[in-house]
Amino acid sequence: MTVSPEALLAIVLMALATYAIRAGGLVIADKLPRDGFFAAWLRHIPGAVLAALIAPAIATGGIAEAAAAAITALVFVATRSLFPAMAAGVIAVYLIRLAV
């Protein structure tokens, strides 16, 4: 049960930034455009960030990672559920690494 000063600082800053954004929306509610470029931009951020996160991981991985990513995607599309998709990906990468 320890926390390093660096981790504590990171967590507190993460928390402050997140809370400021949550409260900020309420404060500027009447001035915020509900559609148009700004709204579309905010809507697209989380997906683009996740795509940016996984692209190098898959591109720099080998056959096992690429195949397991495909299996993860298939299981997610079939089940619409995070846990089975993650589990299938992990099991797939484990088995393929054993085989190749």
Binding site: H44, A48, L82
Partner: peptide
């Protein structure tokens, strides 16, 4: 194979965000 859990989780999270064709460009460009 648990090191792959990150990639698998992010991939599933990303696919869960799919709302239509308008998502394709930001994902590919990103």
């Amino acid at each position: 194979g648990l090191d792959f859990a990150f990639t698998a989780t992010f991939l599933a999270l990303l696919l869960g965000m799919w709302r239509g064709k308008a998502d394709l460009v930001p994902w590919l460009v990103g």
